[in-house]
Amino acid sequence: MNRLLKKCLASALLAGSVFSVSAAHAAPPQDLKGKNVVLVHGAFADGSSWDKVIPLLEARGLHVVSVQNPLSSLADDAAATKRVIDQQQGPVVLVGHSWGGVVITQAGNDDKVKALVYVAAFAPDAGQSINDMLKGQPAPVWASELHKDSAGFLTLSTNAVVHDFAQDLPVAEARVVAATQGPWFAGCTDDKVTEAAWHTKPSWFIVAKQDRMIDPHAEAAMASEIGATTTSIDASHVAMLSQPRAVADAIIAAASKVQ
């Protein structure tokens, strides 16, 4: 083998070694295999609202399922969530956005659930409904943009989605959110939690500082009340769409603690 060929082979081997090391550092560790994340969407949304977060969680080895809530009552949504929890093998981190926070507060009492993550969500106590929590507060501006159908289900206008629900998304993306929203039964705001899981399960809470649907100060107060590990991010109500990495990091932090 001549000297030039030896030199070329040595360079190729060295380049291959460097590439292998770089790739190893670039690949996220698959250190959370055997753990599950169940994602619960909120009102005026569906399971696709977690699309940007799911790949980030799966990259860490987590098994992820997004619930498709009927949005017809707390009992119905908690039952849908419970069916998904029942299918999981191993510990579950239960994550709820917005109205989904009420759902996980109820459904999170399942023995498989080891941690709760609230994302710009309501975290009621036992015997509380959303209306109980909001009693005495002025109606938000977006309330005038609600439309009720003949069966009593509510949807948000495209204008409200673009300017109040998802104002930090590109307009075209926000319009898709409006077009795919899940109608929410108006009576859900009176449904009361019977047993609040956060009393017995460790909790994490993401406060969305630019939230126009739920007052960020109320979110921070709820996080403090339930003793949650809190992350505040500069995001709208749909933090999982506008800041998916920050939301995924909080979920991963919770998953890292459960056994």
Rank of each mutant, 00 (worst) to 15 (best):
V93Y: 02
S150E: 14
S129M: 04
A126W: 13
G101E: 02
K148T: 14
Q106M: 00
I130V: 09
F185E: 12
H163W: 13
A115I: 07
A126V: 11
N109K: 01
F185M: 12
R175N: 13
A120K: 06
L94T: 00
K135D: 09
A151K: 13
I104N: 01
V113Y: 00
F153P: 03
L116K: 05
F185S: 14
P140C: 01
G101F: 02
P124W: 09
Y118M: 12
K148E: 15
N109H: 01
K135Q: 11
A139P: 03
H97A: 03
G182N: 12
N131D: 08
P140I: 00
I130D: 00
V117N: 09
L154P: 06
S150M: 14
D149C: 06
V177N: 07
A107L: 01
A143V: 06
A120F: 06
V113Q: 00
L116Q: 06
A166D: 10
W142N: 01
V161S: 10
D168M: 15
Q181T: 12
L169F: 13
Q106D: 03
P140G: 03
D111C: 04
A179Y: 15
H147S: 15
I130A: 05
K148R: 15
V177A: 09
V102H: 02
H97R: 00
D168I: 14
W99Q: 03
V93C: 01
V177I: 12
A172D: 12
A160M: 04
V103D: 05
P140L: 02
A139H: 04
F122R: 07
H163K: 12
G127H: 08
T158Y: 15
S150A: 15
L156F: 03
G152E: 12
I104R: 02
V119C: 13
D110F: 01
V161T: 12
I130K: 02
Q106A: 03
A174D: 11
N131L: 05
Q128T: 07
Q128N: 04
Q128D: 08
S129R: 05
W184A: 13
A166M: 13
V95T: 05
N131A: 04
Q167Y: 14
W184M: 14
H147F: 11
Q106R: 00
V117K: 10
L156C: 07
H147Q: 14
L146T: 04
L146R: 05
E173K: 13
V176E: 14
S144C: 07
I130T: 04
P170S: 15
L94C: 01
P170H: 13
P124H: 09
E145P: 01
F153N: 10
D149G: 04
W184K: 11
V95F: 03
H163V: 12
D125H: 13
S129Q: 05
N131W: 06
D164F: 15
L146E: 06
V177C: 09
A139N: 06
D132R: 04
